[in-house]
């Protein structure tokens, strides 16, 4: 079985590192790809420019506050593109605002998770997210592109 590919879109390298670190500690194997803004995320997903060899992610972990193109726009782009729409998108952000949560789900986010403020919770959230979306959940088969 292929190792699941995660695309993490986050401009906070501390969160990318911590998430990768937590996933590296878990029993299952994951491959974390990281980009730090919304434009890069879309290029990655569409395999444009330097991303022409990029893998098709099984899960997108998306922050909302991003430079150049914000998370909601990225989400909209993904869900409007038939080739990408079936990839589950987990919003992973610090915002607790009800408006952000509602808007994300309205735009087709598959799940909304708040980044916890301490390590034990952070570990629990990231591990359950990976376990659920890349373990228990049945996902569409990856196509060759």
């Amino acid at each position: 079985m292929k190792i699941p590919e995660i695309l993490m879109v986050d401009d906070n390298s501390a969160d990318v590192d911590l998430t990768s670190e937590v996933l590296a500690q878990s029993k299952a194997h994951f491959h974390v790809n990281a980009v730090n803004d919304g434009v890069e995320a879309i290029s990655f997903l569409r395999r444009q420019g330097k991303y022409d060899k990029a893998p098709v992610p099984d899960l997108v972990v998306l922050d909302l506050n991003l430079p150049r193109k914000d998370g909601c726009e990225v989400l909209q782009n993904i869900k409007a593109d038939p080739a990408l729409a079936k990839i589950p998108v987990v919003i992973f952000t610090t915002s607790q605002a009800n408006s952000d949560i509602t808007r994300s789900y309205q735009l087709g986010a598959n799940c909304y998770l708040r980044k916890p403020g301490n390590l034990p919770e952070f570990v629990a959230v990231v591990q359950s997210m990976a376990e659920f979306w890349l373990g228990f959940a049945s996902l569409p088969q990856r196509e060759k592109r």
């Binding site: 501390a14 916890p116 403020g117 301490n118």
Partner: peptide, 17 residues
């Protein structure tokens, strides 16, 4: 404030661990 505080908390906890 919460954002940088989260970094301090999680990474000092990681250090401790």
């Amino acid at each position: 404030l919460q954002e940088p505080l989260r970094m301090v908390a999680t990474y000092t906890q990681l250090l401790a661990e």
